[in-house]
Amino acid sequence: MSAVLSISGLTKRFGALLVTDDVSLDLKAGECHAVIGPNGAGKTTLIHQLSGTLKPDAGAIHFDGQEVTALSAYARARRGLGLTFQITSIIPGFSVLENVALAAQAKDGSSYRFFGSVARERRLNERAMAALELLGIEDRAQRLAGDLSHGEKRALELAVAIASQPKVLLLDEPMAGMGRKESAALIATLQSLKADYPLLLVEHDMDAVFALADRVSVLVYGKIIATGTPEEIRSNAEARAAYLGEEA
C-alpha cells in the first residue's frame, strides 16, 4: 500500500542543537503510526514541521503524492493535513456546534460570503452534528466551548479535525491530561476512526500506543532508532533501554 504521508531526511537545528536528525518515516492508508520517545526527544518539533508551523533545514515532506515541504501551515491544511494541538485550542466563545461548523465551512466553498446567515446553513450544521455524534458529544452542541470539561474539549478538538475532512490526522498527545476513563473512551473512538483517517500519533500514554498503533517509531535525541510493530518494539533492546525501560 502506498504512503499518504512520507518524510525523508528531515533535519532541523536550533543553533547548535540538532533537534530533528535525518528523520524518515511514512504513514500508509488505514494505519495508525505512533511516534514515541522520552521528553525532549523532538516529538513536538517534528509535528510542527509536519503541520508547517516550523520550516525544516533539510529533507522533504510528501503528502498525498505531492511535495509540501515549502508550503505554509494554511496551504497544508487546505490539502487535508489535519492537526490537533497538544494544548487545547478551540474557539472558547463559540458554541460547540459553531466550532465544528467553522471547520466544516473551511471545506465547503468560499467563505467570502457576506450576506446569508451562516447559523442557518443546514449542510454545515448537519456535517458538524455528524462529527459531534461520532465523538459522542452531540448533547453538548449548544454549550459554549470554553465551558466544556477537559476531556470534552479534547473530543471537540477531534470533532473539529474530522469535520474539516482531512486525509490524515496528526494527533499531538491527545491523551494528555486525561483521566483513565476518558482515555479509554478516546482510545475506542480513535480505533473506529483509523479505517477512514490514517493517524500519525505522538503520544506518551503507552496503553494508548499499544492499543492503537500498527507501527511504532522510537525517537531519541531527534533520531529514529527503531521502527516496527508494537511487538517488535516491545522486544527491541535499544528501544527498551531508551524509552520503555525508563517507564517500567
Binding site: A101, L102, F115, V160
Partner: peptide, 28 residues
C-alpha cells in the same frame, strides 16, 4: 449585522479569539 452573521463574519469572529486555530483550519 448581516456580515457578522455570515460565513465571512464567522471566520472573522473566530480569528479574533484564536487566530492560529483558524489558520490551521485552512482559512486565509
Amino acid at each position: 449585522t448581516r456580515i457578522v452573521g455570515s460565513r465571512f463574519g464567522r471566520v472573522l469572529r473566530a480569528a479574533k479569539q484564536n487566530e492560529a486555530r483558524v489558520e490551521t483550519l485552512g482559512y486565509g
